[in-house]
Write a protein that binds this DNA or RNA. Structure first.
Length: 252
DNA sequence: GTTGAGCGTT
């Protein structure tokens, strides 16, 4: 969007994209158009927005019809104060399709990386670009952090935590505290009363996260050690764990 | 209602 009436890229075949950084979150494409149009023919102005909120991400892309005008705009508008902030105008290094761009112009055909013995140089010099990208990723701000978090859905954290007994950050804290508390405080059948309480907590959403719980519950039942010794965390004095099937000791 | 290094859409 943010186009003059069309959707998607209008005609990037012969347009030069400029990356405008440091713009305010309130700045709109229409606000940048007249500003950039003064130095050349602006084909399109696009401002990436957040998927969720839809607010501007703080930068924009301005497409010029000619590189000369784009270059001039870079020199003229770079460092210009817009809405109280100094914007940074520079040629877009990466195209919309993550393709390389030369002076903001999208390289339609990516260089044949397939040909291995085509170039005499064993290593492409683009390596610096990739290194630059990785370097920037290290110092990401929370603004972007939230954005990427939504994109990845904390999948990684969930995966790692899935292996552990923790299921949720908040839940983890409560769980760890309750576990130790219950284990030490009662270290007895009181665990049974706490168990349903926990399941109830996560029972709100029928998600696979209750699977480990069920597995744990069944493990206690199936595992002989779970009966008399509810706490799987062996206590320093809990030597009774050694005598596994001591007695069913069914609470009830 | 906030944020602030970066690289893009139906």
């Amino acid at each position: 969007m943010s186009h003059f009436g069309r959707s998607g890229p209008p005609d990037i075949r012969d347009t030069y994209s400029l990356l405008v950084l440091n713009i305010t979150f309130r700045t709109k494409a229409d606000d940048l158009y007249p500003l950039f149009d003064r130095y050349g023919k602006v084909v399109d102005v696009f401002i990436p927005r957040d998927r969720r909120t839809g607010d501007s991400r703080g930068f924009a892309f301005v497409r010029y019809k000619y590189a000369d005008e784009a270059q001039k705009a870079v020199d003229r508008l770079d460092g210009r104060n817009v809405d109280g902030r100094n914007i940074m105008v520079q040629f877009a290094k990466y195209g919309p399709n993550a393709e390389r761009t030369h002076k903001g112009r999208i390289m339609e055909a990516v260089p044949r990386s397939r040909g291995r013995s085509r170039s005499r140089s064993p290593r492409p010099r683009y390596r610096d670009d990739y290194r630059d990208r990785n370097y920037r990723r290290h110092s990401r701000s929370r603004s972007r952090g939230r954005y990427e978090r939504n994109r990845h859905y904390d999948r990684e954290r969930y995966y790692h935590r899935s292996k552990s007994y923790s299921f949720s950050p908040d839940y983890d804290r409560d769980y760890g505290r309750s576990r130790l508390d219950d284990a030490r405080r009662s270290r007895s059948r009181s665990f049974a009363s706490a168990s349903p309480a926990r399941r109830s907590y996560s029972s709100r959403s029928s998600s696979p996260r209750r699977t480990p719980l069920s597995r744990d519950a069944s493990l206690d039942e199936h595992g002989s050690r779970g009966k008399s010794s509810p706490s799987r965390s062996v206590s320093p004095e809990g030597r009774q764990d050694d005598s596994r099937s001591t007695s069913p000791c069914s609470s009830g």
